[in-house]
Write a protein that binds this DNA or RNA. Sequence first.
DNA 1: CACGCAAGCTAAATCCTTTTAGCAATGGAG
DNA 2: CTCCATTGCTAAAAGGATTTAGCTTGCGTG
Lengths: 340, 340
Amino acid sequence: MPRKRVTLADVARRAGLSTTAASMILNGRPDTRLSKEAHERVHTAAAELGYRPNVAARGLRTDTTHTIGFVSDSVATTRFAGGLIQGALDAARQAGHVVLVAETGGDPKRESEAIAALLDRQVDGIIFATVRARELVVPELPDGTAAIMLNATSTRHPTAVLPDEDLGGRTAVGLLAEAGHAQGIALVGQSDDAEHGLFRSSTVARRVAGIRVAMAEHRLAFTAEASTWEWEPHNGYTITDALLRRDPGVRALLCLNDRLAFGAYQALAEHGLRVPQDVSVVSFDDDEIAAYLRPGLTTIALPHLAMGRRAVELLLGSAPRSEVLLPMPVVTRGSIAAPR
Amino acid sequence: MPRKRVTLADVARRAGLSTTAASMILNGRPDTRLSKEAHERVHTAAAELGYRPNVAARGLRTDTTHTIGFVSDSVATTRFAGGLIQGALDAARQAGHVVLVAETGGDPKRESEAIAALLDRQVDGIIFATVRARELVVPELPDGTAAIMLNATSTRHPTAVLPDEDLGGRTAVGLLAEAGHAQGIALVGQSDDAEHGLFRSSTVARRVAGIRVAMAEHRLAFTAEASTWEWEPHNGYTITDALLRRDPGVRALLCLNDRLAFGAYQALAEHGLRVPQDVSVVSFDDDEIAAYLRPGLTTIALPHLAMGRRAVELLLGSAPRSEVLLPMPVVTRGSIAAPR
DNA sequence: CACGCAAGCTAAATCCTTTTAGCAATGGAG
DNA sequence: CTCCATTGCTAAAAGGATTTAGCTTGCGTG
C-alpha cells in the first residue's frame, strides 16, 4: 500500500546527490556535466522507488501541464460524434497528454464556466467541438493557451478541423450516377424552395452545395425534393411516404443523413418496395444504425476519428491558421443497385 | 488580451495587505480576525483584477485538486453508455470539480498507464467504468485517492454503482403478465440449456435471474428460449426468424436487449406479424434505437445518467463500502398489447 | 504604571519541481 | 608557482498558493 508519493528529494537522497542533479538527469538535459555514474545512481534510485514526477509542481515552474481541455456541447455524452473524442483521446494519449472533458449542453454560461475551470488548471490548450458543425462564439484565451475548433468554426480562432462536405456531397451523387441512375432521383431532407433563410449548420450547406454541383456536372436533376427541419427517423418516414404517394416513379433516394434514411427504409417497406432492387438509397454520416439496417446502408461517413486525432495534433504542433478539411470516406454496404 | 494571470500577490498588493490576509479572506476562514474593511478591500481588488486561484499551486499545498479521473473501456466514445459519463460530468460540474477522461479500450496496459497519468496529476479520486458491467481488476491506489466502480465491480474496491437488474428483470415479466400474456411467451437472447459456463456480465446474470423468479411467481413458463452469444440486431433477426418458423403460436417476445429486439422487429415484419397487435415485445436498456422503431419499443431502461451522478456523489462524499443499486425505470412506448 | 490580552495583521515555511548562479577540485599551460 | 579552464556538483530562488507562528498596537485592569 503506497503510503505517500515518492518525491524527487527522496530519489536524490537515495542516490546521494542533490535534487538539482536528480532533476537534470531525469529530464535528460543535454548540456549537463554530471558523471556517468551519477546518471546511473539516479536512474536506479528512481526506478527502485517508483518515482513519478508531480505534474502540478512541474507545471508551476514550466508553465506546461501536458493536459488539454476538450469542451463541447455534447460530444462525449450523445451517440452522434463519439469518434471526435475518441480520436482526440487517442492522439493525446500517444503524445503523453491527458484530457479534461467538459460538456456545456450548448449553454454559453456553462461554457464560460467550463473554460474558466480549465484555465484554472493551466491547460496547455483547448479544443472546442460541436456535435453538429456550427459557428461558435468563443472568448479570447490567455496568451500561450492555444485553441482549435473541431467540427466547429469561430471567427476568433481560425484553426478548424472539418469534414470535406463539399467533396462528400459530390461523392454521394457520383455513387448513384455510377450505378446508372439517371432519373427518378429524390433528395430527402432539404429543398431549395423551402430553405429560404433557414439556419442550417455551415457544413451542411457545403454538403448540399456539393450535391447540386455534382448533379449539374452529371446533367442530372432531382424529380423531387422534400424538406424537413429535423433530420430524425420519424421525419424521414413521413417525407418518404408522401413522396411515394405523389410519385411512384422514384428509383433512388439521396438522404441527407442516416436517420432520415432509416425512416425512408420504413416507408419503402410499407409501400412494398425493396432496397436496393426497387429503390437505391444513399446517405451521409455512417451513423451506427446504418449497419443495423437490412440491407446495410451505403453512406458517406463523417471522419470523426481522424478529425479528433487531427485536432490534437494541431493543438500540440504548430497549427495553420485556417480550415483543415478531412475527406469523407464511402462506406459501401448493400443499398445501391442499378435501376431496373 | 489577458497577458498574464493575476496572482494572489497582485490582489494583496492592490488591497494593501499581505498575501496571508488575502488568502484567508478569499477562502472565508471563519476564525480570522481581519477587519470588515480588509475583507472589503480584498474582495473588490480580486473582482477588479479578475483573480482566479491557480488550482495547481493550491493543490500542491492542500493535496486536493478538485479534479477527478474517469477511466473506462469505451464509455465516452461509444454510443452505449454515454449517460454514465454525462451524469458524472454533470455532478462533477455542480460540485465544482472537473473530470479527466481516459479510455483504455479494455487493454490492461493502457489502463495502468492511464491510472499513472491521472495520479501524476493528483486527482482526488478515480471512477472506473465499463460499458458492459463486468468485473475489473484494478490496482491499489495511493492513500487518499478514492475509487468508485461504475457499472463494474472489483474485489479491491467494493463501492460500486450498478443497475438493479434483478428488479428490472422482474419488472419486464410483470409488464407482460399485466397485459394478460399467459402463454406463447418467448425469451430472446438466452436459454438455460445453452448457457452452461458461458461468461456473461455479472449484471446480466441478475437480469435473467430476476426474469426467472418473476416467471415462476406469475406461474408462467417460456414456450421457447433462444440463445445467442452476441446481442446484436443481426442475431435477433436470425433467432426470431427461426423461432417463428418453429412455433407460430408466439404472442410475446421478451428480448434481453434492445438491439435483439430491433432484429426481432425485422423478422416479425417479414413474417407478416404486427407489433403489438399480433406479438408484444418488451426489452431492456432503452438504447436510442428503441425510440426509432415503429411502434416505439417498450423497454426497461438502464439508469445510466443517475448512475454516473451517483458515482461522483459517492466519490466526493463518504461512500459505503458496498454496492449501490439503482432502479431501472420502465419506458413505456407502444410495443405491448393484450393478446388476442 | 506595568501587565495581560485581544485585535489585526504579517513573515516565513511549506508543497514539489525546475533553473540560475556559482562553488570546489583538478589538471594543464605559461 | 600562479592562473585559468574544465569538470562535477549544489545552494537557493522561483512558481502560486496555504498555513503556522508570531509580531505590533491599544486598551483595560490591578
